[in-house]
């Protein structure tokens, strides 16, 4: 899942070297904290959060473990 996020996000941003994804795994959920360069935050969130929403949609589709919900936070 972390690799999926990297694959999706890297081509969208200007400073891929600042991209960092922290994972917090819990029994019933996994939380992914996406951290990007300050100037890239807008690119990853998008107008009205449209990019962020699309990223989440693809991540949910990729998650096959239905007992565990996946969350994506962008900061």
């Amino acid at each position: 899942m972390k690799e999926l996020l990297e694959t999706m996000i890297t081509p969208l941003i200007e400073y891929p070297e600042y991209l960092n994804i922290d994972v917090k795994e819990e029994p019933d959920k996994a939380v992914y904290h996406v951290i990007v360069h300050q100037d890239d935050v807008g690119r990853v969130i998008g107008k009205n959060g449209r990019v962020a929403k699309s990223i989440r949609t693809v991540v949910y589709a990729a998650n096959r473990d239905k007992t565990r919900k996946v969350y994506v936070d962008i900061m």
């Binding site: 969208l12 998008g46 990019v51 929403k53 699309s54 990223i55 949609t57 693809v58």
Partner: peptide, 18 residues
């Protein structure tokens, strides 16, 4: 088609980045 639409939007953003 929500996943396809999401992927479409992301692909468009990625292509437009360059």
């Amino acid at each position: 088609g929500q996943t396809l639409n999401a992927l479409q939007y992301l692909t468009q953003m990625a292509v437009n980045n360059s």
